[in-house]
Design a protein around this nucleic acid. Sequence first.
DNA 1: AACTTACGTCAGCCTTGTTGACTTTCCAAG
DNA 2: CTTGGAAAGTCAACAAGGCTGACGTAAGTT
Lengths: 161, 161
Amino acid sequence: MDGHGGEKLLFLTDEQLRQGIEAMFFAYRGFTSDPDRILDDYAYGRAHHRALHFINRSPGTTVNNLLSILGVTKQSLNRVLRTLIEDGLVEARVGDRDRRERHLHLTATGRALEAKLSDAQQTRMRQAYRTAGPEAVAGFRRVLEAMMDPEIRRHYAGLAE
Amino acid sequence: MDGHGGEKLLFLTDEQLRQGIEAMFFAYRGFTSDPDRILDDYAYGRAHHRALHFINRSPGTTVNNLLSILGVTKQSLNRVLRTLIEDGLVEARVGDRDRRERHLHLTATGRALEAKLSDAQQTRMRQAYRTAGPEAVAGFRRVLEAMMDPEIRRHYAGLAE
DNA sequence: AACTTACGTCAGCCTTGTTGACTTTCCAAG
DNA sequence: CTTGGAAAGTCAACAAGGCTGACGTAAGTT
């Protein structure tokens, strides 16, 4: 693409970097605050939201798959998953090919809550995008992608593995 | 500045918004991972890092001030602050004008750890900035700022209150 | 038959958030 | 000078959500 093209000199003072760091901190708080408020009404937390999000994104994903995306232990995930299954938001189907695997799907109820949560988050993001403008959005995404760990980047943007 | 200038139509599909949301999630993980690894070596957590960061940014800040920036309860902050003071990283000086207030300062040891932590974080951010390019950095900052809660934006960028 | 993988579960621990109640200190207004 | 209230600290109890370690079971794989 632009390869060397955009290689202007970047004069980055410590102060500018510090502001970038704080921007991440404060923005992430805003980013999670809307779903958090909704989750309070149910007895769920951020961990439940994350599970709902990624199951919705990749229906039929296995437990192991979800573990590597979320980067937590199976004990942590299981605690969350169990309540979601008990409450009828998530369905765990035994695998056809490999019957050890559990393929995770959202039920209608699960999809409803996921939609509610992601609507709130999308509204904020859409508003931020509109305020910042189209070029800003592209830059935002580029910096975020460059900030991820490489192994994590694999899981990003719906890349099948 | 450019006001209406950048108001092209923004066609934002749900898929694009979802990818932005995931980018925030994955990038934030990367963003915190380096300091987290360092903190493990001491017996500290992310909460200690945040306190060190903001005390370093605004030396002499009061506890109440810090509370409103961090958005936690005084009991939560106090637990963290107490260990930092006991361990000699933070000094709480009784206020001159108002002797109820404690003005927080980093000791030499505290500054050393803060520097170590922020170096790690700055290195990642600098690398991401370099990969993404200068225009991307500006966009990144604009979107993040637009994503913050307005009350929080007051605390941002060293605005004195 | 033995090994490995996928998943679930029990027990226990830590950090970091919460609420509620209470005390001490101390400024400032009556 | 007294009193009200703000600032700060502390104790206790609790919850979410991470973690480790150990164990069990079903089901593929060799």
